[in-house]
Design a protein around this nucleic acid. Structure first.
Length: 107
DNA sequence: TATTTGACGATTT
DNA sequence: CAAATCGCCAAAT
């Protein structure tokens, strides 16, 4: 256990890991699940600082518009896009169809 | 301790 | 539709 990670960040990572294969979730969904719908920025920050970005499916996290992260830690939005398409998620213009892949209930 | 920054969101121009 | 602006939160400097 790495205690250098705050409880908040850990909470973010755990919630992110709940996203099922082939699906995506928005920052807002995670924030809402954590009970802090206004902490979307802090969440994005935590994921960017993500020390274990490979074991955490952060590529399944997109913004409310289904748009990918422009500064994705691995290969920018392109890397995130490829990881998603590899899971069967269609990405068009760095954007996914939320109506099709967004997780209805994160639990 | 105070200021700045940022993988965001919603609203306004 | 794109850019600017404000709000909100946690971490970094």
């Amino acid at each position: 256990m790495d205690k250098s990670i705050s409880e908040f960040a850990r909470h973010v990572y755990l919630t992110t890991k709940m996203i099922p294969f082939g699906c995506v979730a928005t920052y807002t969904d995670i924030a809402n699940k954590m009970g802090k719908p206004k902490a979307v920025r802090a969440i994005g920050n935590a994921l960017h600082n993500n020390p274990q970005m490979i074991i955490i499916p952060c590529h399944r996290v997109v913004n409310i518009q289904g748009k990918l992260a422009k500064n994705f830690g691995f290969h920018g939005a392109d890397g995130q896009k490829e990881l998603l398409e590899k899971e069967g998620v269609v990405v068009i213009n760095n954007q996914v169809d939320l109506c099709e892949y967004r997780v209805k209930e994160l639990k």
